[in-house]
Design a protein around this nucleic acid. Structure first.
Length: 560
RNA sequence: GCGCCCGUGGCUCAGCAGGAUAGAGCAACGGUUUCCUAAACCGUGGGUCGGGGGUUCGAAUCCCUCCGGGCGCACCA
């Protein structure tokens, strides 16, 4: 139940009615009234809701906005709606509507009844898939993966709270060119470890992780691969390395609070002939041509800067070809919307990917790509370069060890994906107030502490339905109630914009209102009635903080 | 050169489908604890919303253009 949305609809009804009743005299056709907004003004002095219709009608009606507002206000008041306390005209012609507080006092019971579900929106008949991280199993998870992980997981939770059926997926790039390179790198390491002096491939993966993997392999299976043919040797090493790597990635992400529904292997697309299948389909539809022995996709037909290779002259399909087959598969699985989170360095891939979907007859808008700006890591005031080739990555595990899961996730989620993120390791490690996650968590812990105190003082906890919420008359209390009431709408907007950072911001605001209230008013007191009302307010504040934290994957500690 | 993203107080960033006097946090300065956790609260100072033009009753928000920064423009992924 969304009390604010219900009120907003009610106000809209009243405004519509006033328009209908007054427009004829102004010789304006009701049908031509432009779309107007009923919004919650930023400044609470401007009422609970504001409407801009008078300003929009000014030209058409050949009257000043204030005159129109006057007429409308008269008609709004004539309806004698019980919700309305007063209506004012302000600014350039805003109609500011003040609602009486009755509705606010209905809120606590709504929150109590819904509990852990408060904020969850009505179930929608729509399946969404979110694919994120999908890191190559050729190196460790780095800061960019961490950001993508925090973002993707929070977004999935958010959409699920918004009523969608959400599936989280990790695409395992276990085929293709980078796997060839991985194989060659492993082979070189293996032979080197077994006393042969072989050169390391120029474009190989030089990270320590591969050295360790090969050591593990040798410890387990010995050195017999030296005797085999290269092809056999590489296959054995790759099988081992990929299994280990993927298990490791899975575990790292799990430690970061991320659990996927599906792990999808690229290799299966190659082996099942799905890539050839989709290539034929594109060919038959006329979107493919041959040039210099390679097969090209006409992505320029879809607004791309140039066409893209699907199959190389050597007969091996590109990553792009596999990705087309993969995304076709996603839509075949019945998702209404498919969301991908990619690093900004992949933006060139967006147009052709959408183009390919369109070529296959899907609606390209149903493939939504969130481009996330890259993360720059600073340590000791210096930029730490992230390169798998040189092996100097800071792994996700180290990040969790050093700054903690909650701080790391909050830091990633609180920012708009569009903005660059400079992650200062030293700053994050300090656990200073620089990090708003503690501010939010502290609010939760403080509330829990009040309840512990109440128990220690021998307070009889009331049944919430017996509590008179109407005693919460202080401005700070009403502000808190309004903010809590706003939670479902916040989820709605955040989900619509695919913007989980809004939830993190909401949390900071809510915690701020609570801290301010807490410092100004005592909860536990001689006045049992008032004490109960305030305990109720704290209880629903805690519920809301806890629910919102759950969306962004941050814990709600009972003490700090 | 072309394309995408960004440019908001000293620093890090919000600003949801254009709305009213542009908001937080950090930093600076000053205050608050016989009282439920001071990881908190209250107050003060500080901004040509990169520049210019346009649309609009109204622009940080939309359009154009220029400047600055990041990223991308492979038969890599």
């Amino acid at each position: 139940m969304n009390l604010i949305a219900a009120l907003e609809n009610r106000i809209r009804e009243l405004v519509d009615l006033a328009l209908k009743n007054s427009l004829q005299a102004q010789e304006i056709n009701f049908e031509t009234v432009p779309d107007f907004v009923i919004e919650v003004p930023r400044d609470e002095n401007h009422g609970d809701f504001a409407c801009n219709v008078a300003m929009l009608l000014a030209r058409q009606a050949k009257k000043s906005p204030k005159d129109i507002a006057n007429i409308l206000v008269k008609h709004i008041l004539q309806a004698n709606a019980k919700e309305i306390e007063k209506v004012e005209i302000a600014g350039a012609g805003f109609i500011n509507i003040f609602i009486n507080d009755d509705w606010l006092y209905e809120l606590p019971m709504v929150v109590c009844q819904l509990g852990k579900e408060y904020g969850r929106l009505e179930t929608k008949n729509s399946k969404i898939q979110v694919e994120f991280v999908s890191a190559n199993p050729t190196g460790n998870l780095h800061m960019g993966n961490a950001r993508g992980g925090a973002l993707g997981d929070s977004l999935s939770n958010l959409l699920s709270w918004a009523g969608y059926q959400v599936e989280k997926e990790f695409y395992i790039n276990d085929a293709g060119n980078q796997i060839e390179i991985l194989g060659a790198s492993l082979e070189a390491r293996y032979l080197q470890q077994n006393g042969q002096s072989v050169p390391f491939p120029e474009d190989g993966y030089a990270g320590q992780d591969l050295v360790d993997l090969v050591k593990q392999f040798t410890a387990k299976y010995g050195s017999h691969l030296v005797e085999l043919e290269s092809k056999e040797r590489v296959k054995s090493l790759l099988d081992f390395a990929l299994t280990e790597k993927i298990a490791y990635i899975k575990e790292s992400l799990l430690n970061f609070g991320i659990k996927y529904d599906v792990w999808f292997s690229e290799k299966t697309l190659h082996e099942s002939g799905k890539i050839d299948e989709v290539l034929n389909e594109l060919k038959e539809a006329g979107y493919v041509y041959e040039h210099e022995e390679a097969l090209w996709f006409k992505s320029t037909q879809f607004g791309d800067e140039k066409d893209e290779v699907l199959v190389r002259a050597n007969g091996i399909p590109t990553y792009f070809a596999a990705d087309i087959a993969y995304h076709k598969n996603k839509f075949q699985r019945g998702f209404n919307r498919v969301i991908n989170i990619w690093g900004a360095d992949h933006h060139g891939h967006v147009k052709r990917m959408k183009g390919a979907m369109e070529a296959l007859g899907y609606i390209s808008d149903n493939l939504e790509i969130i481009l996330m700006q890259l993360v720059r890591l600073y340590s000791g005031g210096n930029l730490v370069r992230m390169s798998k080739r040189t092996g100097t990555t800071i792994a996700l595990d180290e990040l969790i060890d050093e700054v903690g899961l909650d701080a790391a996730r909050f830091t990633f989620v609180v920012r708009n994906p569009d903005s660059h993120l400079d992650f200062d390791l030293d700053l994050a490690k300090q656990k200073s107030m620089e990090n708003p996650v503690y501010y939010v968590q502290y609010a939760h812990a403080r509330i829990c502490s009040v309840f512990r105190q109440a128990v220690a003082f021998g307070v009889d906890m009331p049944s919430w339905e017996d509590v008179n919420a109407g005693l919460l008359v202080e401005d700070e209390e009403k502000r808190l109630l309004r903010k809590i009431a706003d939670f479902p709408a916040e989820i709605e907007v955040a989900a619509r914009n695919l913007a989980p950072h809004r939830i993190a911001r909401y949390l900071t605001d809510l915690a701020g209102l609570f801290h301010s209230y807490y410092n100004n008013f005592r909860v536990l007191s001689e006045n049992t009635e008032l004490q109960n009302a305030r305990l109720l307010l704290l209880h629903i504040t805690r519920t809301t903080i806890s629910n919102a934290l759950m969306i962004i994957g941050v814990s709600a500690p009972e003490q700090m």
